[in-house]
């Protein structure tokens, strides 16, 4: 899967992508989208980020917003099979993970919320009032 800038206005990501498209060299973090899988969406009032990271507890996540960048990191522990057991299939991601999302400029840091439900970490970053489009009535 090719890297895509999450936000169209993310100029650096866009330039990086263009450059990569020219010389065909993949991202240093690998061509795979990474773990956990993420969905991102926006509403006029918020940026919604969903990370599909099952088998964790809320305390095991480290969520940070710094310089307009949201970082989700943590560690997924491996299942410890009982002594003498055989592992036939082992497809789960285990170990440390880290994913980064660049946020738009109009975010309101103080009202960021995060919740973990059914194995999905949901982060809601509020956007500033001023950036929300307002309808101007024509006199």
């Amino acid at each position: 899967m090719h890297y895509r800038g999450i936000f169209p206005r993310d100029l650096f990501a866009e330039l990086e992508r263009l450059q990569r498209d020219y010389d065909g060299s993949p991202s240093i973090r690998g061509a795979a989208p990474g773990y956990p899988a993420m969905n991102v969406g926006t509403t006029p009032k918020s940026v919604e980020v969903y990370a599909f990271a099952p088998g964790m507890t809320p305390e095991e996540f480290d969520v940070q917003v710094e310089n307009g960048v949201l970082t989700i990191s943590g560690e997924r522990k491996d299942i410890v099979p009982p002594e003498g057991a055989t592992r036939h299939i082992g497809e789960h991601f285990t170990g440390r993970f880290r994913r980064v999302v660049s946020l738009p400029d109009d975010i309101e840091l103080n009202s960021t919320t995060a919740s973990y439900r059914d194995g999905v970490l949901h982060i809601c970053v509020a956007r500033r009032e001023a950036a929300q489009s307002r309808r101007i009535s024509v006199q």
Partner: peptide, 22 residues
């Protein structure tokens, strides 16, 4: 879904990742 399958003397334990499913 990604799975782990572990077998011991008395049976098999299967773990499946189904994030987002209630």
């Amino acid at each position: 879904p990604a799975v782990q399958v572990v077998e011991d003397a008395t049976g098999i334990t299967l773990y499946a990742d189904l994030p987002g499913v209630p």
